[in-house]
Amino acid sequence: MTSPAVTPPALQLVLGEEELLVERAVRASVDAAKLADPAAELTRVKVSDLSAPELAELVSPSLFAERRVIVLENAHDATKDIAAAVTAYIKEPAESVQLVVLHTGGGRKPAKDLVTALRSAGADIVECPRITRPADREAFVRNEIRRAGGKTDADAVSALIDSVGSDLRELASAAAQLVADTGGQVTAEEVRRYHRGRADVTGFAVAEKAVTGDVPGALEMLRWAMQLGVPHVLVADALADAVRTVARVAGAGRADPFRLSSELGMPTWKVRKALAQSRGWHPAGLAVAMRVVAEVNADVKGVAADADYALQRAVLRLAEARRRN
């Protein structure tokens, strides 16, 4: 048996909700265990299915000292009893047992205390927070490509996110595949060669183009949104929201965005954006636009025979209203 220089940690806390990253942390931990002992066995168990005696049985060292990896899933659901059992165990962990606790960081008090207990017991902590911000997602894709042994640039990364979407698993596998296909140099051209179309189009993207008078862009976005199955109601609501935001900001007159944001109860970035969008709108046009979005709101809820058409028409009518003065 070859022993690695560093033995895997006996206690590990995987903290966060991003499934792909959690899964990777578990796999890394199992791989480390296999390196230490090829006969290591893996047991995955949900905390809610577990009782204190069962846990005691799982974590007691085996007779022949084989390495064991016990993965406690959904530790944030832990009840008082099971949390107490885990806390008792982590005070004196067994040598050949690797306990990996998967925890979102939330849950009730006993479950939350478990995190503190594991921290103070010196557990190895892997943070896997959910990736929500676009910048984080871009960094993730860049990392993925680097991990697979490739090189890339900002254009290629944003092209890939546009066409694949925000699901990390899909992004990771697409990144790995691209590196394999292109031989390492992932450029925007290469991305477009293999991926076409768009994955994430929200109603807001449609609305943004529609209120700035970009008719071809808005219609294109709308087609993509329909193709991807974005509910009509969401697009209609986004249109209404965009128009009323512009109307509110335009009605307030030229003013400091910070003052406006507190006056209108809107975040500053939204005010700034709406101020830019409100250029080119006239009060009469806005009045028409408000009616248009109210009508399309009824249309997508069953009044129009064809909701697709109703939305397209609303986009065209908004553009027409914007030209009015």
């Binding site: 209404a240 009469a284 806005l286 009045a287 408000m290 009616r291 109210a294 709101n297 069953g302």
Partner: peptide, 19 residues
Amino acid sequence: EQNVKPRIAIEAMLTTLHH
């Protein structure tokens, strides 16, 4: 009655009342 969001419907109405 057709399930339009109250706020949207009322704002559209009031814009017309204003204009």
